[in-house]
């Protein structure tokens, strides 16, 4: 009687153990497989994003290191050398070399201080002024509330816009043209940048240089649009981008580009 009881208990133990082990093995195999698959997918997505980011940074750097700009700048420096104006040529060569260094240095960063961006723009505009001489005037106005050392800005966004303003807005204008860059404080984590020129305006520029614009501006605009989209997608920044022809709203010629930068502090943590 006792032996029979023991036997049936062992049978029960055996079947229950078998059931438990099978159920657990099945559960853990399914869950571990799914977990690994999901981790792989996330890794692939992260790698893809990183690759995309590097591609965009490279494209942005290429857009900044525009061969026409390099060529024109060196030509202008060469002109001063030929004129035996050693002091001016040295001064501009120093500025040009500093600008190139900034392009490379900042292209490796995700964002820089607003003060660094302003320094890059100053350098860039001074070299452009070398080419345009008295026909180019520029101003960089920083809101008193905005501390340029405190606020950060994604790299390689503003300079291509200023370059567009000069090459497509002011280049085709007769007489002196000006470009004004405003850095306005909006809140503790946001600010706006306005790039305003009094050139021929985006509509007119498109008509005049239809083919050239198609190749160059559309390329740099596409890179910019892609970078802004990527920045918004990553969630660290929210950037609003608006471009308007001033003749439509202010009855003045020229183009106005508005960029609103909001830094998502929580996501950055």
């Amino acid at each position: 009687m006792f032996k029979e009881e023991i036997n049936s208990i062992f049978i029960i133990i055996f079947f229950i153990t078998l059931l438990v082990v099978l159920a657990l093995v099945f559960l853990f195999v399914v869950f571990t497989n799914r977990k690994n698959k999901l981790i792989n997918e996330n890794l692939e997505s992260a790698l893809e994003n990183q690759k995309k980011q590097h591609e965009l940074e490279l494209k942005a750097l290429r857009a900044q290191m525009n061969p026409h700009f390099v060529h024109n700048s060196l030509n202008a420096i060469q002109y001063y050398i030929q004129q035996n104006d050693v002091e001016t040529s040295e001064d501009y060569l120093a500025k040009f070399s500093k600008l190139m260094r900034q392009f490379f240095e900042f292209s490796r960063k995700q964002y820089i201080r607003v003060s660094e961006e302003i320094s890059l723009l100053e350098n860039y505009l001074q070299i452009e002024k070398l080419r345009f001489e008295e026909e180019l005037e520029y101003q960089i106005i920083v809101d008193s509330e905005l501390d340029p050392d405190d606020f950060q800005i994604p790299t390689m966004i503003i300079q291509p816009l200023v370059e567009n303003a000069i090459n497509h807005g002011l280049f085709n204008k007769k007489g002196t043209g000006s470009v004004i860059i405003h850095f306005n404080y909006l809140s503790e984590s946001s600010f706006e940048v306005l790039v305003i020129d009094d050139g021929i305006g985006i509509k007119q520029a498109k008509k005049l240089n239809h083919n050239i614009l198609k190749e160059n501006e559309s390329h740099s605009s596409a890179v910019l649009a892609e970078r802004l989209h990527f920045l918004n997608q990553r969630g660290l920044w929210h950037v609003d981008y608006k471009i308007e022809d001033r003749s439509l709203s202010e009855e003045k010629s020229g183009t106005k580009v508005t960029l609103k930068f909001s830094q998502n502090i929580n996501d950055e943590d």
């Binding site: 399914v30 869950f31 799914r34 977990k35 999901l38 981790i39 996330n42």
Partner: peptide, 10 residues
Amino acid sequence: LLNSSRVITF
């Protein structure tokens, strides 16, 4: 659970 991201930390 299998269809959510929580499966990573199941």
